[in-house]
């Protein structure tokens, strides 16, 4: 069995009489240590998929295995534990806590696990050692996203899930963030899943999954991933 196994996943959103099927017949695998890019148009269901994979949402049908555990069978307590131990999230809009400094934003995640990394060290790894006492409002978007990445990495998660991490950033800043993610994956052997609607980014991945109208339209392994700095779009 692969490190991540997604089998026939279906997700319906019900609001009153209305039923929206966001995902259906989604199946794929990701191997440990891979950098995986999920691409698709707006509304395709990427975020929904990532949220289910990260234990933020539950699915309607199907199974998901991560590292041999069937997370689709987890109850909400187990899901919380799963998010706490195994998952690092990076969002498009960073979602830092405005009232905490950069260091504290990382600490708040780090203090949840015993085997977390030191918050200041992780911030050093993402290149922010000199800004650790600043509040989010005092940081640029790229810097904030670095803090968010540091926060996700501090927990030493099995899986790093990034939902359009460069969506709110300019070209160059976006590039450096993606490079940071790629390097992290390479250096730590962490499994990284990146959502984007920029097809050019497929080149940086070990594995590419294309989503269209709520289902996987194609998926392939890229035997020669390109370093991010060499990709142009």
């Amino acid at each position: 069995m692969s490190y991540i196994e997604v089998q026939n996943v279906k997700k319906d959103y019900k609001s009153g009489e209305l039923k929206v099927t966001a995902l259906h017949d989604v199946s794929f695998q990701i191997e440990k240590g891979e950098i995986c890019v999920i691409v698709g148009e707006s509304g395709a269901g990427k975020t929904t998929l990532l949220n289910i994979l990260g234990g933020m949402d539950t699915l309607t049908e199907g199974r998901i295995y991560v590292d041999g555990q069937e997370i689709s069978a987890y109850n909400s307590r187990q899901l919380t534990e799963y998010r706490r131990k195994d998952i690092g999230f990076v969002f498009q809009f960073y979602n830092l806590i405005p009232n905490l400094t950069a260091l504290e934003n990382v600490e708040i995640a780090a203090q949840l696990n015993r085997n977390s990394q030191d918050a200041a060290t992780v911030l050093g790894q993402v290149g922010l050692e000199h800004r650790i006492q600043n509040f989010p409002a005092q940081l640029s978007g790229g810097e904030q996203q670095r803090v968010a990445i540091a926060r996700a990495l501090a927990k030493n998660p099995k899986l790093l899930l990034c939902d359009e991490p460069t969506g709110a950033l300019d070209y160059n800043t976006g590039k450096t963030i993606l490079k940071l993610l790629q390097d992290t994956g390479r250096n730590t052997g962490m499994t990284v899943v990146i959502i984007t609607h920029n097809k050019a980014l497929c080149d940086m991945a070990d594995r590419v999954i294309k989503i269209k109208s709520g289902t996987v339209s194609s998926s392939y392994i890229n035997p020669t991933p390109t370093p991010v700095e060499n990709i142009e779009w």
Binding site: M56, R77, L112, K155
Partner: peptide
């Protein structure tokens, strides 16, 4: 609300 959702995502329990 956003802040609370964030800490929940980080794995804060109930």
């Amino acid at each position: 609300q956003r802040e609370i959702a964030t800490v929940k995502v980080l794995g804060f329990n109930r």
